[in-house]
Amino acid sequence: MMTLSLMTDALSCLPFLDMVKKAKEMGIQQLEFATGNWSNSPHLQLDTLSGSSDARQEFLGILDEYGLSISALNCSGNHLAPNALGARHLELVHKTFALASLLGVKKIVMMSGLPGACEEDASPNWITTSWPPENLQMLDWQWRERLIPSWHSLIKRAQDCNIDAIALENHGSQLVYNAYTLKHLREEVGPMVGMNLDPSHLFWMGGDPRAMARSLGSMIYHVHAKDARIEEGLFQVQGLLDTQPIEAYATRSWNYVALGYGHDLSWWKEFFSVLAMVGYDGPISLEMEDMTMDQITGVTKSIELLKAAMPRCWE
């Protein structure tokens, strides 16, 4: 049965204990904790928990007291960046794997990574078209020389840490960002990696998460409940490749929004129905980044929609 989870960054306005109490009050069953990299990790101190069994016992004890468990640890970042940032992010990925072992967490959520386009590159390079012809040569190099060797190494480390699954988010500016690229990576490195299906990213890339769910089936290891709205009157002029900052929501072609503010209840009911059809029964982890409302409001409204849409009864 699908469980209701929260990516706790959505309530970064609250300290740890207050967040846990609010999650319990809202009927949330599991929590997904960010450990760092692109998150400031508001509710989990990676080094403290890694270095102290007492700290881990206290942390897990609080979750147990409120009837909550950990759905996943999230270390999303770019461990393949060809610079100091990549080295720092990779180090944190390794630390997260080790902490998962200490906490008994079996699933990691992260991203595939994005390297440069050649040996000399000092910055990541996301190639999104097959023309001009040199693009395909660079893309082949990224996969052959960087992505595949890196993931063979990461999977071995994950296995040593007793991790069962790594769910890669279908985010833009990553080498794995859709069904095709995930399947391609699995062909090379095996079934340890699957998809963290986040509908919001596929929306702005012009896809349909319901179709992605049907295509991936058992390759879906985690689901982020996150919505995006394509902005009428703007995307028709600008297209969907929008580089304006997220804070410029009034002029962007698309925006992240609370659940129901981009796609209605009917859409989400069908999405969860399709997930059930393909056999997914894991966490539905709310991620809320609507900048037009405060976090408590956005999470509350999103939870209301999830309880109405998910194929289960609530007490």
Rank of each mutant, 00 (worst) to 15 (best):
G190D: 04
F33M: 01
Y180C: 11
W126L: 04
L182P: 02
D264H: 07
D64P: 02
H201S: 07
G262Q: 03
E247P: 00
H263G: 07
V257I: 05
I163K: 01
E58N: 15
G239A: 09
V237L: 09
K269C: 12
W38N: 12
P82G: 03
L259D: 04
G217I: 09
N40F: 11
W267P: 05
G233Q: 06
L286T: 10
C75H: 00
T243I: 10
D18E: 14
N40S: 11
A225L: 12
P149G: 09
G239K: 02
M205V: 06
T128M: 13
W141Q: 01
H184N: 13
G172I: 13
I155G: 00
L99A: 06
E119M: 07
I230F: 08
G298A: 12
N78I: 08
V105S: 00
G298P: 05
K106N: 08
S150M: 10
V93I: 03
D198T: 03
L31G: 01
Q236W: 05
R312I: 11
T3V: 15
P149L: 03
A98Q: 12
L197P: 00
E32G: 04
I148K: 02
P283A: 13
L80F: 04
F16M: 07
I70W: 02
R210C: 15
V274P: 06
A81D: 03
P133M: 13
L103E: 08
L306W: 03
K269D: 04
M26G: 10
Q244H: 13
H43P: 01
G282E: 02
N135T: 04
